[in-house]
Design a protein around this nucleic acid. Structure first.
Length: 288
DNA sequence: CATCCGTGGAA
DNA sequence: TTTCCAAGGAT
């Protein structure tokens, strides 16, 4: 196995973007909030929302003291609004179980709502400097290409953690940089569509390049069509609730022009089931 | 393990 | 215009 860590560290020191959550002393809560927002939402859209969020709720306890509705409202158009709900729940759990301090232990982090393998380790590593493999979609693509010689990674798996762990240096501070560097490389150079291999610090040891860039990656499963989907219906309903908040909206006024009545009702029901909306006497509102 | 869950910008 | 994709997680 070629040494990927050394060139990645050198490259990262020069090329890392100056992102808010990388500033020294940004704090574990800030890192945690940023990671929630970054789950499937691009960096450029996250930054302004992150600043506003942390200004309003500088600590987990501050967020926990407000109603979930406030979190869902502040989440605005970041997408996947249950992340706002989960982040609020996590804040309550941090207040109740950890004295208001974001835990450092990976298992404790994994036990919080909305936190999985990626986010738990990202917080432990980037906020606390511990030594763990951190694997996101960028990292998986980098490893698939550099080590497996494939153009795209296979489906996500627990084995990805082992693959990343295998290239981590012994020192935890170096390991944290390699974690960040693999993500950064995948985000800015080793991109999904048109990778810039001329700017890649590990091109000379990349298995995919050595094999002549074979297109061995299976076709990625196509994302379900959004237009006309249940997700779009949910999004439309929730947007109305956000715009009306804190006032409830009468059910008959909720996207009353939606083309598919059944789909609209299905969206409302599922939002209630998910805890993103609350029915109150013929009307719907964000959850209190 | 496959599917579901928002939103908006770029190719 | 359509398609692709973006620091995932829960079920």
């Amino acid at each position: 196995m070629p040494d990927l860590a050394t060139p990645l560290i050198a490259w990262y020191r020069v090329n890392a973007r100056d992102l808010p959550w990388r500033r020294p002393g940004f704090g574990a809560w800030g890192v945690l909030v940023s990671e929630f927002m970054l789950q499937q939402t691009p960096v450029g859209r996250v930054i302004p929302h992150l600043e506003a969020w942390l200004t309003r709720w500088p600590t987990p306890s501050a967020l926990a003291a407000d109603a979930p509705a406030e979190a869902v409202h502040q989440w605005a158009n970041l997408g996947y609004p249950r992340r706002a709900l989960w982040l609020h729940r996590a804040a309550v759990e941090i207040r109740d179980r950890h004295g208001g301090i974001v835990p450092q232990d990976v298992d404790a982090l994994l036990a919080l709502s909305g936190i999985g393998d990626y986010t738990a380790r990202a917080v432990a590593v980037f906020a606390y400097g511990d030594r763990h493999p951190v694997v996101d979609t960028n990292t998986r693509r980098v490893l698939a290409r550099a080590i497996e010689g494939r153009s795209q990674p296979g489906p996500p798996s627990r084995r990805d953690l082992d693959a990343m762990a295998a290239i981590l240096p012994a020192r935890s501070d170096d390991a944290a940089i390699v974690d960040a560097a693999a993500m950064e490389l995948g985000a800015t150079v080793c991109t999904a569509r048109s990778p810039r291999c001329g700017a890649c610090p590990i091109a000379d040891r990349c298995a995919w390049r050595a094999a002549g860039y074979p297109d061995t990656g299976e076709e990625r499963r196509r994302q379900a069509r959004y237009e006309g989907s249940d997700r779009q219906a949910r999004g439309a309903v929730l947007r109305v609730l956000r715009d009306a908040a804190p006032l409830p909206v009468r059910l008959e006024d909720l996207v009353s022009d939606w083309p598919d009545r059944l789909q609209r009702d299905r969206a409302i029901d599922s939002l209630i089931v998910d805890g993103l909306a609350e029915a109150s006497d013929g009307a719907l509102r964000l959850p209190r």
